Amino acid sequence: MTDERSAYDEKLESILRTAARIFAEKGYHQASIRDIARATGVSLSGLYYYFNSKEELLFLIQDHAFGTLLDNLERNLANVEEPHRRLRILVENHLRYFIDAKAEMKVLSHESESLTGDFRRRVNDKKRRLSETAMEILREIRPGGGIDLRVATFSLFGMMNWLYNWHRPGADVPVETLVEDMYRIFLHGYLPDGATVPASADEGAAGEPQPIWRTA
Rank of each mutant, 00 (worst) to 15 (best):
V80E: 11
R128A: 15
Y28A: 03
A20G: 05
M105F: 08
K127I: 15
R38S: 08
I141N: 08
A39W: 08
G46C: 11
F66L: 14
E92S: 15
F119E: 13
N124T: 12
L47N: 00
H110I: 12
Y8K: 13
F98S: 05
I22E: 03
E55A: 03
D71P: 02
L57P: 00
A39C: 10
H84D: 10
G67W: 08
D125I: 12
Y50C: 04
L87P: 04
G46N: 02
D125R: 07
R139H: 12
K54M: 03
N124A: 08
F51K: 02
L77S: 08
N76F: 12
R21K: 10
R142D: 10
F23Y: 04
A65Q: 11
E92V: 09
R38I: 13
A19Q: 06
Y8T: 08
R128G: 00
L16A: 07
G145P: 03
L108F: 01
I61P: 01
N72G: 14
Y97D: 03
S43W: 02
I61Y: 00
L87D: 08
I61W: 01
R122S: 06
D9Y: 11
D118H: 07
I33E: 06
G46F: 06
E113H: 03
R88P: 03
E140Q: 14
A103P: 03
A39M: 12
G144Y: 09
N79G: 12
L90R: 03
I33W: 00
N52H: 04
R86V: 13
L77A: 14
H29T: 13
E10Y: 05
E55L: 02
E74A: 09
I141K: 10
I147T: 08
L130G: 05
S45V: 14
A31D: 09
L95A: 02
H110C: 01
L44W: 03
V107W: 00
G67Q: 10
M105E: 15
N76E: 15
G117S: 07
H64A: 09
G146F: 02
K102C: 10
T133H: 04
R17C: 08
D71V: 12
P143F: 06
L130Q: 12
T40D: 06
Y28V: 09
V107P: 00
S14N: 10
K102T: 15
K26Y: 10
F98M: 11
